[in-house]
Amino acid sequence: MKKSLLALALLPVVLAGCGSTATKGTPAPGRTLTVFAAASLTESFKALGRTFEAAHPGVKVTFNFGASSALAQQITQGAPADVFAAASPATMKTVTDAGDATAPKTFVKNRLEIAVPPANPGKIVALKDLANAKLKVVLCAPQVPCGAAAIKALGAAGLKVTPVSQEQDVKAALTKVELGEADAALVYRTDVKSAGDKVKGIDFPESLKAINAYPIAVLAKAPQAALAQEFTQLVTSAPGQQVLQQAGFEAP
């Protein structure tokens, strides 16, 4: 029995050993920059990542795209990352409050659009059409920044919309429209743009009431702090801003 207790006591040591060998396994000359970014940044950040890699030979940029709130949770739980770009100041605040990042900087703004299938089977032209109970409308979950923005926009318009689903991130909501399962979704205009002709975007004036500011920050425990700093500089530089604005983002 005493020996089995010893085995239990040794467990953390063994597991920690496994962890460190895994990180040491990466080749020494190449460096990896890990960027956690909101799902809506997928296309533009991938493009910026390629630019960054071209300018820094031997550096590989890896991304973790997802709901900002999920990424923030992963970071505060100790996920190893260098840069965090969130879709709302509120999610960034959970990371800065935990002491995992300081001095976030807003680098773009984004607003919502209604995404409908190209044929627009629900014949939607304005935000108020989403209140029609016969339509299948998909929103982001309220925990996720795009869901919070949707609640704000609908609230500003005094509308009550009952969605068929609250999706876990903005890309999941968009996919439901692309597949034709939903008649409409409230997503960012950048997502509509990135989906090309698979969905149609409908602008609505109430979206101005729910503009999301996107903050970016170098993380306190960034293994590649210097590279992380350079990446955030690229994102806020004129060429970086051009890529982002081509994707539909607005200047901060």
């Binding site: 999920a70 949770q73 925990q143 969605p163 068929v164 609250q166 999706e167």
Partner: peptide
């Protein structure tokens, strides 16, 4: 999908609750 009372089962509720 995920909608409380209709399709939000416990595992889905756990996943989304964890974020906030």
């Amino acid at each position: 999908g995920n909608f409380p009372g209709r399709t939000q089962t416990m595992p889905l509720a756990v996943y989304l609750a964890l974020e906030t």
